[in-house]
C-alpha cells in the first residue's frame, strides 16, 4: 500500500471531430476524494472512461493502484468500483438481484443487505429497476460501485439530474466512502459539489487540466480572490461608463455587476464614491470570497454553466 492510487501522464484521445483529452497529467493520493471539475464537453468523462478501461487512449500512461491495464487488467477490475454516467441495467432486475449478481463476479464482496442499507434502498430492494426513480437508480449504481469493497472508486457525475435532497443523500455516501479509507475520483460540473466533497480538484477545460489544488488554495491563489457585487432591481444596466469612471473592470451578470479585486477594503470607498457620482440605482452591495466558479471564470473567461 504505497504510492499514489492513480497516476496519469500525457493522456491523449482524439475523436474524428474533436480532441477530447489533450495531454492530461493527474496524480491522486490514496484515501483522498479527488474531483474533475469542468463544463460539459471538457473531457472529464472521456478521461474517466480511459482510466476505467472502457475507451483506449491514443497516448499516455496510466497506473491504477500501481497496476497497468496491459499487464493487470483483471486485477484492476477486481479492485476498483465504477459508477458510470448512466447505468443502464435490465429493466426487470431488482436491486437485490443486481447486487447479488454483480457481487458474484468478484472474489471479495460486501453483503447485499449492507449495501442496500448504505444507500437506503431496503424498501425498494425487490422492485424492478425500471420502476425506480432517478435518484434511486443512481443510489443503486453507487451501491454497485461498492459491491466488491473497492480500494478505489470512480463516480461519473453522480448527482446530475437529481433533486437537492437526493444530492445531499449521495454526498453523504461519498463522505462515508472517504471515512472508510477508500480513494474516490469523481467528475462534476457543480462547483458546490466539488467544494463540499473534494479534498483536491483538477479543473478541466477543452481536454486540458487548467488548475489543480485544494478548493481553498485554488481560490486563494487567484489574483483577485474577492468579488464585490452590486445587485439591481431587474436587469443590470450597461456598466461600460461606470467601469471607466471607476478605473476597474466591471462584469455584468443578468441582474448584478461583479467587480473582482485583490483588496476589497481599498476598493470599497472608491466604489461608493463612483456610485454616488454616477447615480447608479443599485439595491445592495455584497462582498464575497471568490468561488470555484470564479476560478474557472478567471482562468477561461467563461462560466462553468455555459
Amino acid at each position: 500500500m504505497s504510492g499514489p492510487a492513480l497516476r496519469i501522464r500525457g493522456l491523449r484521445k482524439a475523436f474524428p471531430k474533436v480532441v477530447a483529452v489533450d495531454g492530461v497529467d493527474l496524480e491522486v493520493a490514496r484515501g483522498e476524494v479527488f474531483g474533475l471539475l469542468g463544463p460539459n464537453g471538457a473531457g472529464k468523462t472521456t478521461t474517466l472512461e480511459i482510466i476505467e478501461g472502457l475507451t483506449t487512449a491514443d497516448a499516455g500512461e496510466i497506473e491504477i493502484l500501481g497496476l497497468t491495464w496491459e499487464k493487470n487488467g483483471k486485477e484492476i477490475r477486481a479492485r476498483f468500483g465504477v459508477q458510470l454516467q448512466s447505468t443502464s441495467l435490465f429493466n426487470k432486475i431488482t436491486p437485490r438481484e443486481a447486487l447479488d449478481l454483480y457481487g458474484s463476479y468478484y472474489p471479495k464482496r460486501r453483503p447485499t443487505q449492507e449495501l442496500l442499507e448504505l444507500v437506503q434502498l431496503e424498501e425498494k430492494a425487490d422492485a424492478y429497476h425500471v420502476t425506480l426513480s432517478g435518484g434511486q437508480q443512481q443510489r443503486l449504481a453507487l451501491a454497485l460501485a461498492l459491491v466488491n469493497d473497492p480500494e478505489l472508486v470512480f463516480l461519473d457525475e453522480p448527482t446530475t439530474g437529481l433533486d437537492p435532497q437526493a444530492r445531499r443523500g449521495l454526498w453523504d455516501v461519498v463522505k462515508r466512502m472517504k471515512s472508510e479509507g477508500r480513494t474516490v475520483v469523481l467528475t462534476t460540473h457543480y462547483m458546490d459539489e466539488a467544494e463540499a466533497l473534494c479534498d483536491r480538484l483538477a479543473i478541466m477545460d477543452h481536454g486540458r487540466v487548467i488548475a489543480t489544488g485544494t478548493p481553498a488554495t485554488l481560490i486563494s491563489d487567484l489574483a483577485m480572490p474577492s468579488v464585490v457585487e452590486l445587485t439591481f432591481e431587474g436587469a443590470a444596466p450597461d456598466p461600460a461608463a461606470f467601469a471607466a469612471r471607476l478605473g476597474q473592470a466591471v462584469e455584468p451578470r443578468s441582474d448584478l455587476w461583479e467587480i473582482r479585486t485583490p483588496d476589497p477594503k481599498a476598493l470599497l470607498p472608491r466604489l461608493l464614491e463612483a456610485v454616488e457620482a454616477a447615480a447608479i440605482p443599485f439595491q445592495q452591495v455584497h462582498i464575497r470570497r471568490a468561488t470555484l466558479e470564479d476560478v474557472f471564470l478567471q482562468r477561461t473567461g467563461r462560466s462553468l454553466r455555459e
Binding site: 472502457l54 477486481a78 476498483f80 465504477v82 458510470l84 448512466s86 443502464s88 463476479y105 468478484y106 454497485l144
Partner: peptide, 13 residues
C-alpha cells in the same frame, strides 16, 4: 446499443 452491457465491462466477468 442501449448500453446494457457497459456496466459489465468494468467488472472482472
Amino acid at each position: 446499443e442501449k448500453g446494457k452491457f457497459r456496466r459489465l465491462a468494468v467488472t472482472p466477468l
